[in-house]
């Protein structure tokens, strides 16, 4: 079940991207997504793709691994293409029943698909190159200013890291419960939706009970090790900026400016390829 999910799983290599401070990378994702939506012409798009290619190259995550992660979003891309392709108005070049294809539609579909893939790949680069612990530490730090308005930044980060640790354990547990009920002759395949939903009860109840038991055990274990929330807590590996992080921020700024520039400048000189 969950084990197949490749999106968002840390890929263990050492690279310059890997070493960057998670805050830089979090900021990077925001900038990158903004840039994808700022650009509006083919040159901008090429620029974004080129930037992504450099990022992937620097991160040392194999392209094959990234493509595997995309498996689950292809259908989303296809739906998006489908609607843009067959329902866009403009210079109609083909028409059948309620479907019609226009030149602008084709362009828009292609543009949209590429944008979507860029956003997904770009943001998943964050999790490919950042360990869950680092990621949550980064989030906690980023959310720290919100503490003043009693926003539970530490608690959210702690919950996230616990969730990340327990996903494989719980998925194993689900697997085991399903098998155990199958061994008692359960049939999860046949029957209508109501029969199927009812058939889930023997899985859901043991799963909930087990999750609660684990939660209570974990809470006891944390308490016995002096845990009392984020206040007064220190870190073994506190986040500290290095020179490479400053460079990272500057690169991000330049990247953002370039995307805006491409939009404004190209608007004046180029009319072809604008969408």
């Amino acid at each position: 079940m969950f084990r197949d999910i490749t999106i968002g799983q840390f890929y263990p290599v050492t690279s310059i991207i890997n070493k960057l401070d998670p805050r830089v990378k979090l900021c990077g994702v925001v900038v990158y997504i903004a840039a994808v939506f700022i650009i509006n012409n083919i040159f901008g798009l090429l620029f974004i793709i080129a930037a992504l290619a450099v990022l992937i190259y620097l991160s040392k995550v194999p392209l094959k691994h990234i493509m595997k992660g995309l498996r689950f979003v292809w259908f989303l891309v296809i739906i998006a293409i489908f609607f843009n392709l067959f329902f866009s108005d403009g210079d109609i070049i083909w028409r059948w029943w309620i479907f019609h294809m226009s030149r602008q539609g084709i362009l828009r579909a292609a543009f949209f698909a590429v944008r979507l893939v860029c956003v997904i790949v770009g943001s998943s680069m964050l999790t490919y190159t950042t360990t869950p612990t680092n990621l949550t530490a980064g989030l906690e730090k980023v959310m720290q200013p919100l503490n003043k308005i009693h926003f539970p930044g530490h608690e959210i980060a702690m919950m996230m890291s616990i969730a990340l640790r327990f996903i494989p354990i719980l998925s194993e547990e689900i697997n085991k419960i399903i098998k155990a009920q199958l061994a008692r002759g359960a049939d999860f395949d046949s029957g209508g939706i109501i029969v199927k939903a009812k058939g889930m009860i023997p899985i859901m109840i043991p799963l909930f009970i087990s999750a609660f038991r684990r939660a209570s055990d974990l809470a006891t274990a944390m308490e016995s090790r002096c845990y009392s929330g984020g206040e007064g807590r220190t870190k073994m590996y506190p986040l500290r900026y290095h020179k490479r992080d400053t460079v990272g921020y500057i690169v991000l700024l330049l990247f953002l400016l370039a995307s805006i520039g491409l939009r404004i400048l190209m608007q004046q000189f180029v009319t072809i390829g604008r969408i």
Binding site: S161, I162, D217, A221, C226, Y227, R233, T234
Partner: peptide, 26 residues
């Protein structure tokens, strides 16, 4: 249950959990 008492996702961070809680220096 070993699985229900490990909080960290890396061994050294797990061992550090208690010391972090009491605010020891890095």
């Amino acid at each position: 249950n070993p699985d229900n008492q490990i909080i960290g996702s890396i061994v050294d961070e797990e061992v550090a959990f208690g010391l972090e809680n009491i605010g020891a220096s890095t």
